[in-house]
Simulated assay, not measured.
Amino acid sequence: MVATPKPTTERISRAETVYEQLKRDVAEFRLVPGDRFTEQSVCARLDVSRTPVRQALTRLQQEGYVEVMYRSGWRVLPFDFDKFEQLYDLRMVLESTAAHRLCEDGLHAANTKNRALLDGLIARWLVPVAERSTDAALVSQWDEAFHCTLVEAAGNAEMARVHRDVTDRIRIIRRLDFTKQARIDATYDEHGKILKAIRAKRGDQAAMLLRAHIATSQAEVRKITLHQMHMARQV
């Protein structure tokens, strides 16, 4: 009896799992710029064969996260801060446009889903100070969801798709914006003001507040050092 080969989809699934885990390791600073590792060490840690590991690493190499080192395994690449600043600029354009769209007459009334998305954001961010979360990792996730949801609620699927891609590419450093309690408090305050402006259909004000909010985060990115990344790794 001829053995049935394992389906290709299973191999793809394993490669995807390894890819997501390694990308998460970089984003959460278990692997920081300059760290070196081997395919064998990844295989042992994740209990998978070499093929999905190699596929995952090749994909991460194409995306600019890692590079292969001749005879010495792989290395996590230094951050390209010029590229990150360009992505922040693009994010600012997309979110400002979304803010204006959200304030257009009839948008909320015409789309129950959009209205529900905004209601969910209001319920999370417009809360008394005593009810605010102090969990940096959780607030970081909520912050990302806040911005993605605003663009999604604006109703342009292609704009939302591009914004999700930008978000994915800057996730690795925007998490550092939440290593200090003051930035968590500021995020609640700024998100609240943005939502109030959108609820009042003040498009220019909402867009201005969003640009200022993103610019503050962009300025924090400029201050990031390798030392800070190592400190964040311990949080």
Rank of each mutant, 00 (worst) to 15 (best):
Y88K: 09
A219D: 15
L87D: 13
R75N: 05
V221I: 14
F84N: 14
F29E: 00
R59S: 09
C43N: 07
D47Y: 06
K223T: 11
G34P: 02
P5M: 13
A116H: 08
V151K: 01
A153W: 04
D119H: 05
G106K: 09
R202D: 09
E39T: 13
D165I: 12
E16C: 08
R171M: 08
L22K: 01
K23F: 02
D25Y: 07
M159W: 13
A182D: 07
A160G: 06
K180M: 10
P52W: 00
K180V: 11
E158I: 13
Y188R: 03
V139W: 07
V139K: 01
H108F: 12
D189R: 08
D82Y: 14
R169Y: 05
V2K: 14
T179F: 03
A56Y: 02
R169M: 09
A200M: 07
N156A: 08
A123P: 07
W74E: 02
Q141K: 06
G203V: 01
V166L: 01
D189C: 04
R14G: 06
D82E: 15
Q62R: 11
L90K: 04
L210Q: 00
Y70Q: 14
L94D: 11
G73V: 02
R45V: 09
A136C: 10
E16M: 07
Y70M: 14
Q55H: 12
G120F: 05
A182Y: 04
R101Y: 05
D80I: 03
K83N: 13
W74L: 05
D35E: 04
G155Y: 06
A27L: 10
A212L: 15
S41M: 11
K6W: 15
A3M: 15
T149C: 03
E158M: 13
A154M: 04
V76H: 02
A197V: 02
L31E: 00
R54H: 15
E220N: 12
C148Y: 10
A182V: 09
